[in-house]
Nucleic acid binder design. Sequence first.
DNA 1: AGAGCCATGTAACTAGTTACATGATTCG
DNA 2: CGAATCATGTAACTAGTTACATGGCTCT
Lengths: 195, 195
Amino acid sequence: MSLRMALLGLLKATGPASGYDLAKLFDSSINNAWKAGHSQIYPELARMTEDGLVTVEADGPRGRKTYTLTDAGWEALRHWLVGREPERHWRSEAALRAFLLPLLDAREAAAWLRREAEYYAERLRSLEELRHADGEEYPMKRAGFGRYALELGISQNRLLRDWALDSAADLERRAAEEENETATGEDAAERRAGD
Amino acid sequence: MSLRMALLGLLKATGPASGYDLAKLFDSSINNAWKAGHSQIYPELARMTEDGLVTVEADGPRGRKTYTLTDAGWEALRHWLVGREPERHWRSEAALRAFLLPLLDAREAAAWLRREAEYYAERLRSLEELRHADGEEYPMKRAGFGRYALELGISQNRLLRDWALDSAADLERRAAEEENETATGEDAAERRAGD
DNA sequence: AGAGCCATGTAACTAGTTACATGATTCG
DNA sequence: CGAATCATGTAACTAGTTACATGGCTCT
């Protein structure tokens, strides 16, 4: 359903487009919110045509098919956006790893987190560039389309970067404390064993 | 693969458990990072047994099967955690809606965002409670397991709440400006048409 | 003529969802 | 003895991934 809505939204925002165009738009715009390859998009467009949400004109060069949003299509999108509770579940491999991280040795986990932080920092940079890019470089920016999603993406990547750095520092502090304990305190360990 | 790793991680952290236990643990702990129902967990455990990652003892009451992590299972988990780039793609219905939001009327979009903000605020409250809960109420907290994921979840919900409120305010400001323009300025519109 | 991009699709597979189905035990 | 919970599974379906397959058009 979400894929379908993403396609309807892109058609609403850009006007008529081919499956090929939509696949490219996916990569360059909505990409931070949803992902789909052409092998998923083409059959979905065919089903949407059957359901009357889009109409197709097969005319362009190389058998290019141009899809146009119908009234029913726009109505379906509006209804989905406004009239339904969103699905809240998300699956994120990054979050899962975060969850499992304390199973590792603290130093190892910290090192991994620092590499993650670099990734998020890089990502943050590229999204901030998008914010300052004008309409030609980032065509979806026209009409404020994607504006709020872009801000969200930027904030989230900043958050993830900071979280990774803070967690790494925390793990390193804990590792250092432990090492300190075992190094200075054979006697302390004996004291603990005694009570 | 991620489901498999989540199950291995839970077994590592809690010790031997049944499919039923693991399904409940999923709901109560790892839930913010990954989601799975029993109909996905049971067959996965069967496959993991075939692959030698866990062993099964069918002994308990009501045909309860107890799964135990093997050395190969722990090794597989370690390797997945440390030795691979994570998959970065995420699909989030919330983010997709954020992207498509500017297609709606500004007032309507703002109202929707304010409802969203309430949802995130509620979620934030319940995660913050978890942070202060002791080990009995939140068993995964033992040994710091899930600690970093919990902090991440709290930060993310706070971010989403604030993002929704800020975006709503922005949309309302824009709507007000537009209304102001059309109300006061027939002449202004003509002036614009003239240049 | 050949490289590169435009453009569309299908097939086989893995992952995840929803609904159905069954029965044992425990507690009040 | 009945309700709640424990406990396991399967079947049918939808969504998403990866790999394969084909051919047209444009530019050099």
